[in-house]
Design a binder for these strands. Structure first.
Lengths: 231, 231
DNA sequence: TCGGCCCGGTGGTCTGACCAATGAGTACCA
DNA sequence: TGGTACTCATTGGTCAGACCACCGGGCCGA
């Protein structure tokens, strides 16, 4: 097996540990090391690579975090089973998407509750403001106008829930998911769904029916998401 | 800043490095350490955490691979720019003058969902941390210790839900409702209820049963509130 | 045969030393 | 005066060696 020492020359761009990790990763992905193969003991491997055990361990940490190897105290380390292209999969999944997903998750949690509370607590003045926004909403508006009214509706609803924390959360999640919402307001269908969804929520709130209000909000969010995912 | 040493007692489930990494990650995602903050030098940090520099460096590798920190030879390490929102959420909510009732309302909303998501998403390491906290929890503890473990349990659970926004939210609501919680931990009954509630939540999470986990959390919050209202 | 003990191998952790990059303060010269 | 080059403390990077904790297998006695 070729655990040959790494050429000492050209090793100055990356750290020793990273260099070793890359070396071992190449051995694995190229097939020289197969799943289930036992790696030499850390002390031996470090010696054959002419690096300290500390650096070797740094490399091992990296490989382990990439699930390329498994380590077991007292037993040694083995090359892990490779669930088909793990390495690439690991790189993938844009962090941006993850963040949006997190924000969306929070929004899905908060908004229905806002609708419920608004149904219970909304003052007349809240209802008037909401009604006014709805009166200004129709599907012929430009995407920008439609989006602005959308934001306004949700913000006013949050105010109607009479909890400043929910207003803040609503504002922030609305902001973070802006891109998704922009997409959905681009199409006529998206604008139509937005308006009708708001209408349904408002009707439930006015009727002081908390549970239906929450349900209407859930449906609204789901529909909007479907539209924007098609766009 | 609370780089307080990690409780040395029951630390045998995970490696020292992993433990330190989890500790620091909690400080970061919960907002105690903010983006741009400089970390103490490795030697100093290792000393304040009562671990060797080697173990600390293992933790640093892990945090770096998660892009939570950046390290620069000769300059030190800093907390990396946070994934969209977390710091924003933290700042936005910090500025508010929060009424306890509002915070409680938000907590009742967020925590059950956290429990549900944790049941679905918790990694083995999350479960280990939670189990360890439970192992350290019993009703004979002092009110302060009991409260600290309570906070830790909920924070770890939020981490298990794998959404940094929820971690931040959990941290903040926990902080706001601190006085209520202090009351409930003063009595033996309160501590007993706390522990048994956590146990029930944990069991549901381990069993990967989302809905029961959420229900257990709701019950837990309700019981705690009843105890503290009687106090 | 079976159970417990011991022991070698392996990863886990710690210590302390030295190397190398960085940047700020300082002395020097044009 | 201004800029340049140097010095040096600080900090991460690497190394060597020691000891601990865990695992598994072999040995030995019941």
């Amino acid at each position: 097996m070729s655990f040959a020492s790494i050429p000492p020359m050209v090793r100055r761009s990356r750290s020793v540990g990273a260099e070793v990790a890359a070396h071992l990763e190449r051995l694995i992905t190229s097939g020289e090391l197969r799943a289930g193969d036992r790696l030499p003991a850390e002390r031996d491997l470090a010696a054959s690579l002419n690096v300290s055990r500390a650096s070797l361990r740094e490399a091992m940490f990296e490989l382990e975090s990439k699930k390329l190897i498994e380590r077991h105290q007292g037993r040694g380390s083995v090359v892990a089973e490779q669930p088909e292209g793990v390495s690439q999969l690991y790189e993938g999944l844009s962090e941006l998407d993850v963040e949006i997903a997190n924000a969306t998750e929070l929004r899905d949690l908060v908004e229905p509750r806002i609708a419920q509370l608004a149904a219970v607590r909304a003052a007349d003045s809240n209802l008037l403001s909401l009604e006014e926004v709805l009166a200004r909403s129709h599907e012929e508006l430009s995407p920008e106008e439609s989006l602005a009214l959308d934001v306004e509706f949700h913000t006013l609803l949050a105010h109607a829930a009479q909890n400043p924390l929910l207003v803040t959360l609503c504002t922030m999640t609305t902001d973070w998911t802006r891109r998704t919402r922009e997409l959905s307001h681009r199409t006529l269908e998206g604008r139509r769904i937005s308006v009708s969804g708001h209408r349904a929520i408002f009707d439930a709130v006015v009727a002081r029916r908390a549970v239906p209000a929450g349900a209407a909000m859930e449906r609204h969010l789901r529909e909007i998401r479907e539209v924007s995912s098609r766009a």
